[in-house]
C-alpha cells in the first residue's frame, strides 16, 4: 500500500454518469490480483472515495478506474484532469492464482461490472472459459460490452428493456448457470444475495461495496456479518472479495 500522486493520462465519459480514468504511477506494481481498489483523496472533501480497479498494466504503469457519479465527491472527481492523490492498492481481490475452474460465470451489476473486467482477462489467460451477465439500468448506462464480448459470451439485461433482456441479472442466471463450475459477482448487496441464493451449489466469489472511512481496516465502518467465530469481516481489508459462504448478506 502506498500513497501516490498519480498523473491522469486520460479521463473521459464512458456512459451516462460513468467515467473512465486512466492513472499513471508506480502503484500498479503493488497490485496482487484483480478486484482490489484505490482510495482517492480530493481537496474539499473530508473522506476519500473508494473506486475499484477495472484494469491495470504493469508494463505501461497504468491503472484504469471506471466510476459512476454518485454524489458531490464523484461529481468533483469528473473535473480532475491533471493528477490525483491515490492510496492503494487496497483490499483482497479475486484469488486468481488459486482459482481452478473450467468455465466461469461473471455477474456484474452497474458499477459492479468494472472489477470483473480485469478478472475476465486473467481467467481467459489461465484458459478458463468466461460467460458474462452484465446488468444495467438502461442502454445509456451500459459500458464495456465489446470488451467483455472479446472474452466470451455476454448476456445483457437492462431494467427498462432498452438493451438486451428486460429485467435483472438474476432473470437470466438460471439459463446460464448449468455449464459453469464457478461464479464471480460484483454489484449492490441485494444483487449479490440474490445471485448467491440462486447458485447455492456452485462455488462463488462476491465483491462487496459499502460506505468506507479509512479504507485500511482501522475504523470499522464497512463491516459485514460473517459465519466464522469472529462474526464479522471488514469489507475494505478482509474483502472486498469474499467466498460466498464466508459472509452473511
Amino acid at each position: 500500500m502506498i500513497n501516490e500522486l498519480m498523473s491522469i493520462l486520460s479521463h473521459e465519459p464512458l456512459a451516462e454518469d460513468t467515467y473512465r480514468l486512466v492513472l499513471h504511477g508506480k502503484m500498479v506494481h503493488e497490485i496482487k490480483e484483480p478486484g482490489q481498489f484505490v482510495h482517492i483523496r480530493m481537496d474539499g472533501f473530508y473522506l476519500r472515495r473508494p473506486v475499484s480497479i477495472s484494469d491495470y498494466d504493469p508494463l505501461n504503469e497504468t491503472i484504469t478506474l471506471i466510476y459512476k457519479v454518485m454524489g458531490d465527491g464523484t461529481e468533483a472527481l469528473t473535473k480532475q484532469n491533471h493528477s490525483l492523490e491515490v492510496l492503494g492498492p487496497l483490499g483482497q481481490g479475486f484469488p486468481i492464482d488459486q482459482i481452478h475452474a473450467n468455465h466461469a460465470l461473471l455477474i456484474g451489476g452497474g458499477v459492479g461490472v468494472p472489477p470483473l473486467y480485469s478478472l475476465a482477462k486473467q481467467l481467459r489467460r489461465k484458459g478458463v472459459s468466461v460467460t458474462s451477465i452484465l446488468g444495467f439500468r438502461s442502454k445509456e448506462e451500459a459500458f464495456l460490452l465489446e470488451d467483455f464480448e472479446a472474452l466470451g459470451d455476454v448476456h445483457i439485461t437492462t431494467e427498462n428493456g432498452t438493451l438486451g433482456r428486460c429485467g435483472r441479472v438474476t432473470d437470466v442466471l438460471s439459463e446460464m448457470a448449468g455449464n459453469c463450475d464457478m461464479y464471480f459477482t460484483c454489484g449492490p448487496t441485494a444483487m449479490l444475495k440474490a445471485v448467491a441464493n440462486d447458485l447455492p451449489d456452485t462455488p462463488g466469489f462476491l465483491s462487496m461495496e459499502e460506505r468506507m472511512g479509512c479504507g485500511i481496516g482501522a475504523c470499522f465502518a464497512c463491516v459485514v456479518p460473517s459465519k466464522d467465530e469472529k462474526g464479522y469481516k471488514r469489507i475494505c481489508c478482509d474483502g472486498p472479495v469474499f467466498r460466498a459462504e464466508e459472509v452473511v448478506l
Binding site: 473522506l47 460506505r211 472511512g213 465502518a221 464497512c222 456479518p225
Partner: peptide, 27 residues
C-alpha cells in the same frame, strides 16, 4: 464481551468533517 456494533452505513461525510456510528465494535 465482544460487540458487533451498529448496522451499516456507519459513516457519512459532512462539511469539514464526518459522522460515525460504529457502536463500540470490539473483540
Amino acid at each position: 464481551e465482544k460487540r458487533f456494533g451498529n448496522g451499516t452505513p456507519r459513516v457519512a461525510e459532512t462539511a469539514s468533517g464526518m459522522l460515525n456510528a460504529i457502536g463500540l465494535q470490539n473483540p
